[in-house]
Design a protein around this nucleic acid. Structure first.
Lengths: 213, 213
DNA sequence: ACCTGAACACCGTTCAAGT
DNA sequence: ACCTGAACACCGTTCAAGT
């Protein structure tokens, strides 16, 4: 970052791999365009169009690298939103708000993360290894906390029930994010209100009787 | 369909528009590949590569036409699953099962329907007019029925509460479909079981006290 | 009205060759 | 090890010209 003066392009550029990822990220977050080409990235980096292939065997590999950064940012954002909240139900709602805010502020990146980055077009189901696992882990942890503190109905040692609750929460939030991004939701209603309503309904399904004060 | 014998290709093909859509549908449903090109469709139809553009100004217009068929099929499948069930909660679960079955059996078509068909890459939010409205309508109707029959908590005239419930249901089902397709869910668990668990949780949030017999 | 053929400005990927 | 230049086999879209 601070090695060379801005215009001193090394013959071999020095750090092309990172430059390509950052370039892709800036296109996707600033121009909201996830349909960039490897050749354009190469152009911006000032290298030949074939250069990227010495760092990424396929375009998908570059997309995966970009998606990874996206997932890290999403996780950080959720964790930050959650950090000051003790009650698991409040924290879960806050995490959902952060999740939807991330998606609506960076729809192109969000689409890239869950979109064709790994689904190669011909594959029936994505061979998604651990992509997105960080996101799930955050929700999983909150659900477990809620179970342990008695705020949620599943018993802390009932793995199946905890799994269903986590999956249910993630599905709801993920689905809502997609519907909002795809303009399937009345745009008159502010996002945070939608999230509040939907999360309240979700929490009603797993919260123990005592109505939250 | 029955006008010409199979190989009598008219000079102007007769019905290229439909042929292109059907060709695209068969590629997408049989080969599970939604990354086809207009030129390939033209090849299969035995016309020049420029011919499609006399029926579809942009490739996206063809994709929209394909997506429309997909949404009609999804709606039909949901309606059929629901047709014999009277209780709104049972019907909603059946609709969800049909929804997820459709998505997992036709992941490529499902991705095309909700994917970049309308999201043109540069647009922040899709200018999705009524695409997918049929799907929402089915769920909306079931939620309303449940409210009217007293199975669900929202009052039948509380539009806001009904809207939240519908959105919540669609989000959950849509999100679950995406997570399954994208292999973000433990593949050891059968889909119908996942749907059952998730829907049960959802219903717990809006069902009136009386535990379903 | 519907289609063809050629053309334009792009792609991703490969591969010998350079440094 | 990293990159270039040329090449290959594609794209979507446009547009004059044909029938």
């Amino acid at each position: 970052m601070k090695k060379d003066s801005p215009d001193t392009r090394a013959y071999h550029h020095g750090d092309l791999r990172r430059a390509l990822i950052e370039s892709a990220l800036s296109i996707v977050t600033q121009e909201q365009d996830w349909s960039f080409s490897l050749r354009e990235l190469a152009r911006r980096a000032g290298v030949s169009h074939a250069a990227p292939h010495s760092h990424f065997a396929e375009k998908r590999d570059l997309l995966i690298a970009v998606a990874d950064v996206g997932f890290a940012r999403l996780r950080d954002r959720m964790l930050e939103a959650v950090s000051r909240l003790k009650r698991a139900d409040k924290a879960l709602t806050a995490a959902a708000q952060a999740y939807i805010a991330f998606a609506t502020e960076n729809p192109a990146l969000y689409r890239l993360m869950f979109g064709p980055a790994l689904a190669d077009g011909a594959a029936t189901r994505t061979a998604a290894s651990g992509i997105g696992a960080e996101t799930k882990a955050v929700l999983e942890d909150l659900v477990l906390r809620g179970a342990q503190s008695g705020v949620f109905t599943p018993k802390p040692d009932d793995a199946a029930a905890l799994g269903v609750a986590t999956l249910s929460c993630w599905s709801t939030v993920h689905g809502l994010a997609n519907l909002i991004i795809d303009s399937k939701v009345d745009p008159a209603l502010p996002d945070h209100q939608l999230v509040d309503g939907v999360m309240q309904l979700f929490l009603d399904g797993i919260r123990t009787r005592r109505p939250a004060s």
